[in-house]
């Protein structure tokens, strides 16, 4: 019933025609777009009529406090349609039904798919900027990303890259992940990737210990130091090089799992941590 009303509403007030500069009413359902739409500049911001509820979650978002509180945070097809958007940025995990419903109503959707590394971050910025008609701002944003990345690379470039594993309750990040690129930029070797793992995969604790990595990255949301100590003392972990030499790194989730600029902060923290523990100067 409610759905029918919304559908009727959507048909009654057809979305305004896209202007020459791109979509007029944009809704984001992805943290990455919540962040990037803001940074694409003052030309794009006023056209955003809804961001994802996760935008305000400091554990996953670097856009906390950017968007005004009165801006809607719609979830689900109904709430999104109620914003009368002409472009909805959806995620890989957005339900296919939602997408189909939106497209039926004539709403354009942009699905950001594939996060296999920094190349995909650039690609997604370009796609997003193109979809909202802010190509120039997108190019500038990509350039800023690369400039910062290059600076970090140079800062952390050393010989003899130590091994690192990202470990989340059994799940490791192998090759073709943002983490693998971040680790490489910070001067590490992704051990999971070196063992032939691509993407995220679950492995046993025994395998992790057998790999004996010099660094293990885990996630944390609060009290990261305590998490680090607790994890490093765990049976098995305590015997690894990471456990013995202070190589356990607890990193806030909004850096560790960022698929945007937050990944650069991950590079910076990883690199600095390495300089701190193995004493090698840049």
């Amino acid at each position: 019933m409610a759905c029918a009303v919304v559908l009727g509403l959507a048909v009654a007030c057809r979305p305004p025609e896209p202007t020459a500069t791109g979509s007029a009413r944009i809704v984001s359902q992805v943290v990455f777009a919540d962040e990037e739409l803001w940074h694409l500049g003052p030309d794009v911001r006023p056209r955003v009529v809804g961001v994802s509820p996760m935008a305000d979650d400091p554990r996953y978002s670097d856009a906390v406090g950017l968007w005004p509180a009165e801006l809607p945070r719609p979830t689900g097809a109904e709430a999104i349609a109620a914003q009368n958007p002409d472009l909805v940025v959806i995620a890989e995990f957005t339900a296919d039904e939602t997408r189909a419903l939106l497209e039926q109503m004539g709403v354009r959707t942009l699905r950001l798919e594939g996060w296999d590394g920094f190349a995909d971050v650039r690609r997604h910025i370009r796609e997003l900027a193109g979809a909202v008609g802010a190509e120039a701002a997108g190019t500038a944003r990509i350039a800023a990303f690369d400039a910062e990345l290059d600076a970090l690379r140079q800062r952390f470039a050393t010989a003899g890259a130590p091994g690192i594993v990202s470990w989340e309750d059994g799940s490791v990040a192998g090759g073709k992940t943002i983490f693998a690129d971040a680790a490489e930029a910070a001067g590490f070797v992704d051990v999971a990737a070196a063992h032939g793992i691509a993407g995220h995969r679950t492995i046993g604790l025994e395998s992790l210990v057998a790999w004996d990595p010099e660094y293990i990255v885990i996630s944390c949301t609060d009290d990261c130091t305590a998490r680090e100590q607790e994890f490093a003392a765990q049976p098995g972990i305590a015997a690894t090089r990471a456990g013995r030499r202070g190589g356990v790194i607890a990193m806030p989730t909004h850096h560790l799992y960022s698929v945007g600029f937050g990944a650069l902060e991950m590079v910076r923290q990883l690199g600095e941590r390495r300089r701190g523990t193995d004493g090698s100067a840049p």
């Binding site: 604790l205 025994e206 049976p235 015997a239 690894t240 013995r244």
Partner: peptide, 17 residues
């Protein structure tokens, strides 16, 4: 058994229990 020895840890701290 030593908690910081890799083999001890794998055999005695992970596999055995």
């Amino acid at each position: 058994s030593r908690a910081d020895d890799l083999i001890d840890a794998q055999v005695w701290l992970l596999r055995a229990p």
